[in-house]
Write a protein that binds this DNA or RNA. Sequence first.
DNA 1: ACCCAGGCGGGCG
DNA 2: CGCCCGCATGGG
Length: 287
Amino acid sequence: MKSERLTAEILNLSYTIESGQPLTFYGDYRNGSDQITYPVGGALVTARFAHMGDKVVIDARSSNGKSVKDEITSRFRLNDDIQTMYESISTDKKISAAIRQFRGMRVTKNEPWETSVCFIISQFNNLKRIRGIIKNMMERFGDPICSFDEETRYSFPSAEALSNARIEDIMRCGAGFRAKYIKSAAKYCTENLDLESISKLEYADLKEELMRIDGVGDKVADCIALMGYGKMEAFPVDVWVKRSMEKMYFKGKKKGVKDIHAYASGKWGEMAGFAQQYIFWYGRSNF
DNA sequence: ACCCAGGCGGGCG
DNA sequence: CGCCCGCATGGG
């Protein structure tokens, strides 16, 4: 099948991909190329984004020839009313500045298992290393899909594959002390928990279920809820969001995570997670 | 060399 | 409960 064309508005590819979101875990984004590739469903998706002002034309295809329209639409949340979302989180000058700087950055909606692994790895870690670890794990534990740019591309490792892996082999990917969490989570998600079946739960119940996974605490559960299940009210509070929130809204005074959650929830409600992505990246880029 | 990174689990008071 | 500590690893 030839590539399919989709259109969107206010979607900045580089901000979206580079701002630390899964897309396993970075796609293969070539800076300036406006193209990404990423594995899904045992195939490799290729998508080109042509930006023309606020309009974006997306040409996408899959290595297996199947339609990718639904995949792209879901992944980049193209059915969201982005204008209304901006209006609802533009509550003050502080966040408006963040939105202005990174206008078009979207919160993506990725597969729950991949999102879980990505954010288990993210703990006490940095983006550069996270990307490397994910890449190593895909090459070691994923299945080869096809060759692209003279390089073999792999699927994201299944929970089954990782539940059978040896911890020391996961560590060899650079995962460090998180390797035991990954294996444990993989076992739990193959034997005790169906990540698909909990997608129908409300945010609070979903988060509670996710926190039963070894290596998933409050912050990682919020990340999985937001970027793996599309729960826009989730507001992950990491060190950057904490710092940014304290600076932006608490006159630089130290605040507990609970206070920050409560404040964000009251201010942005159902769209708190969308606001969070801007606060996170704004803080990382400017503070 | 030293510090830190999209935190979490476990142990202690 | 809330607090505090160790934790693998590599880049700045």
